[in-house]
Amino acid sequence: MVRVEQDARAVLASSFGSAASAYAEHRPDYAPAAVRWALEAGGGRRVLDLGAGTGKLTGTLVALDVDVVAVEPDPAMVAELRRVLPGVRALAGSAEAIPLPDASVDVVVAGNALHWFDMAVAGPEIARVLAPGGVLAGLWNVLDDRVDWVEALEQVAGSAAIGPRDTLGNWRAATAGLHLPDAGVAARFGSPEQAEFPHGQRRTAESLVATLATRAGVLVLPEQRRRATLGRIRDFLTARPETGSGEFTLPLLTGVLRVRPV
């Protein structure tokens, strides 16, 4: 059963490269206040963006004027990151095999990526590259389902488009244990600190459909089900007064979890 779950996670985690350009165009960035909070306990400016994708978090880090290196396993995502942020050092690699020396960064951040890591392997690797006093911080953009129409959208869209980590309650549950599979690995890190920050993304009905189309659960759907899911979402958005006419702000929260190796 565990192997089946691991295989399913691997399929989902590897799905984004096929939509790298759409991901870069439509996924939201991260609340700057959340990123500052993630960094402030690290005691330095050397930051590793791990599982960087197309650079959504990397761009916010650059704007905060830190020394950032991005590591991403998918070649298509790396190529898109290099196109969008040509001044950033971007390396092919993974959380389980980080191509950096020991104690070479002050903070490791992961934007909507920590849940894909095999922390039994990645945990020691992250601890290896962190300098003494360093911090690991996971960030997640989640839909703010305290807003009525967002809660209704989640019900209409279903788990493939929204996913179990995209509601605030499930984000808290998913991050509470840092996704660590056993106490031996969990003991490498101290108790987590959590915070959340308001965020938003300007969207239209059509561009929000395009955003949800980049979710892993949608990317791996058979084409007929994928079209049906996105059509159902489009119908909902065009019928709602909040989203049916022109641009609107999609209510988001950027949630952060940060821990220190021990």
Rank of each mutant, 00 (worst) to 15 (best):
A160D: 12
A160R: 12
A161R: 08
G163L: 11
G163K: 13
P164L: 07
R165A: 13
R165F: 13
D166F: 04
D166M: 10
N170I: 00
W171I: 07
W171C: 14
W171P: 11
W171S: 11
W171V: 11
A173E: 08
A173W: 00
A173M: 02
A174N: 13
A176T: 06
G177C: 10
G177I: 02
H179L: 06
H179C: 09
H179S: 06
L180N: 04
L180D: 09
D182I: 08
D182R: 13
D182M: 05
A183N: 09
A183H: 08
G184N: 00
G184Y: 00
V185P: 01
A187W: 02
A187I: 07
R188Y: 03
R188V: 02
F189E: 04
F189K: 06
G190Q: 07
P192D: 04
E193D: 13
E193A: 14
A195V: 00
F197L: 04
F197A: 01
H199L: 10
H199V: 09
H199F: 11
G200A: 15
Q201A: 15
Q201T: 02
R202F: 05
R203C: 15
R203A: 12
R203M: 15
A205Y: 03
A205L: 06
E206P: 03
S207Q: 06
S207R: 11
T211W: 08
